[in-house]
Design a protein around this nucleic acid. Sequence first.
DNA 1: CTAGCGTCA
DNA 2: GTATTGACGCTAG
Length: 618
Amino acid sequence: CDIRSLGYEEKRKLLATIEKAVAFVTTMIFQDGSSQLNSEQVLTSSVKGVVVLVKNQTDYPCLPGYSSTDCTWDAANEDDKLIYLKTEWSSLWEQEQQAHKKFTWQVLFQMLRCKVPIICFNAKDFLRTLLQVYGNEISWKQVADSVVLDPRIAAWLINPSDTVPSFECLIQKYFEKPFSVETVNTDTGPLRNTSYQNLGVNLEKLYNVMMDLAHDLQVQGLWKLFCTLELPLIKILAVMETHKIHVNKQELKKTSEILGLRLKELEQEAHQVAGERFLLTSSHQLREVLFEKLKLHTLCEKVHRTEIQQLVSTSEVVLNKLQDLHPLPKIILEYRQVHKMKSTYVDGLRMCMRKGFISSTWNQTGTATGRLSAKHPNIQGISKHPIRITKKQYIKGKEEEIVTISPRTLFVSKKGYTFLAADFSHIELRILADLSSEPELLKLFQEPETTDIFSSLASQWKGIPSEQVKHADREQAKRIVYSVVYGAGKERLADCLGTTPLQASQFIESFMQKYKKINEFTKKTIEQCRNKGYVVSIMGRKRPLANINAQDYKLRTQAERQAVNFVVQGSAADLCKMAMVEIFTSVVVSPNLTARLIAQLHDELLFEVEDSQIQEFS
DNA sequence: CTAGCGTCA
DNA sequence: GTATTGACGCTAG
C-alpha cells in the first residue's frame, strides 16, 4: 500500500502491524527509478522514497537455528505487507504534506525502535539517508539502537575476496542452490523496473537470501562475528558518514598556490639540467632522458626494472641511487613529493569538499582481511609527514621563506571541540607475540621500560642510545620487522634496509634465529591453510586461499604469505572493530557524552569531543 | 612482506 | 573521445 492514500484508522492499523512484525525488508528508491538492489547505482540520484516489506509470519521460526530445507517464499506470505513511504515532497499541499511527512517518519521510527531486524542491502546507506532526511527528528543515538541485517556483509564474511557482490549475484548464488525457483527472467534486466510489485518480489528474494546466508554463517562459525561486530559497525559507519569534518578552506587554497609555484620552479630547474624540455610526470619521458640520453644507469650497478616490460625503473629507490651522479634525480624526487602533496592531499581534498566540510565514505566490505577502507577522501591515507618547501617571497625584507605543509593540520575541529585520538600500540606485533608465544617477543612487551618496541629495536640494531633514535630510524625498524615476519625476500629487504641482498639474507637468518617461534607459527598456519583451504583470525574471520596448494611456485608462496598476514592483520582488524563497537556503545548509553567518531585509521580511532567532556570521555 | 586508495600515462 | 591497466607513492600493520 501507498501510505498517502491511508485514512486515520488505516494508519493506526498499519502502525499496529508494524508493532507485530517479525522482520522488515527494505530498500530506498531513487529519482531515476532505481533502487538499492540495482547494482552500483550512482549517488547523484536523490532519494524518492522507501519501500518496506513487512514480514508478519516467518518461514524460519527462529532465526539462528532454523532448517533451510522448507523455504517456500512464493506461497507463504499473504499476510506480508508491502508499503511505500515517500520521503520527498513537492511544495504543493502544505497541510497534507506535513501530515504525511509526520506519519512517514512515525513508521520509520517505529521500525527502528521495535528491535525487529531490518534487512537491507547496503543498510549503511539506508541508515545514513534516514539520519540526513530526519536529522531534526531523529538523533544519531536512536539509530544506534536499531537492528539491521545486511546480506551483502554476510556474503562478504563468507567470501571476503568477493569485495562487491551485487544483489543479482547473491540471488544467483543463493537461489539456484536449494532448488530452482520459477526464474521469470525479470532479474536479468531489472534495471529500469519501477514496478513496486516487482520490487516486492525482489525484497522477498532478498529476505530469503538473507536467511540462507544466516544459515551459512552459522555453519561456518561466522554468526557471532556477524552479529557482535559487523552488524553494529553498520550503524557506526552510518553515523560517522553523517558527521562533517571542517576543513580550513583558505589555508587549502593558499597551500595549493604555494605548491603550484614550487612545481613550476622545479620544472624549470629540471629542464635546465636535462638540457631539454620534457614532461616531468611522465615516467616514459623521464626514462628517455635519464637512461637513453644521460645513460645514468650504466654508472650504477643493478637497477630495478619494471615487472612487465623489463624497462629500467624510475622509482624512488633507483632515483635515490642516482642522486650523486646528476642533479636531475634529486629534482625529480622533490617534484614528485610536491606534486603528490598538491594533487592528492590539497587539490584532491578540495574536490571532496562541500561548503567547507568533508565526509569520507566508508566501505565495510572493501578488504579481504576485515579492515575498513575509506574514499572521497581516503582519510586513512592522508600523509602524516609534513614537507618543507622554500617559498620565494617577493616581499621586501626577506627573499625567501621556508614553509612546512602537513596535510593533517588542514582538518580542524569545531569551536569548543577538540580532536582526540586513541590508538593501539604495535597491535599486529602484539598479536604475533600472542599467537606464536615467542618468549623473546613476549618479554619485550612485558618489560615496563619498553615504551616503544620499534625504537628499542632501532637503538639495538644501530647501536645508538634510545634517546638518539630519530623518527626515520624507528620507521625503518618497523618496516624491517613487518617485512621479515611476513616473509620478505632478501632483495626487497635490501631495498628496505639500504644494504646488499647478501647482508639482508644474513639479517633474516639472525632474526629467525632469535625469534624461532615466529617461524614455527608461520609454518603452522601455512600447514593449516593447506589442510583446510582457509585461515582463521582470532574472532573467527575466514579467508579462503585457493592458491595455497597451487603448482605455480609464485602463486603458492604468495598465498602462503597472505595466509600468515591474514591471521595477524585480520585479528588486528577484529580487535580494532571491537574497540569501535565498545566505545561507541558506551557513548550511546551515556546520557551526557556527545563524542563523535570522525575516522578509523586501522589501529587508531579519532573522535571530536566537547572540550568539557575530554576528561570523562578519555 | 600484507592490506588499501588516488593520480597519471 | 572514453575506459581500463600498470606503475608509483602515500597510508596502516
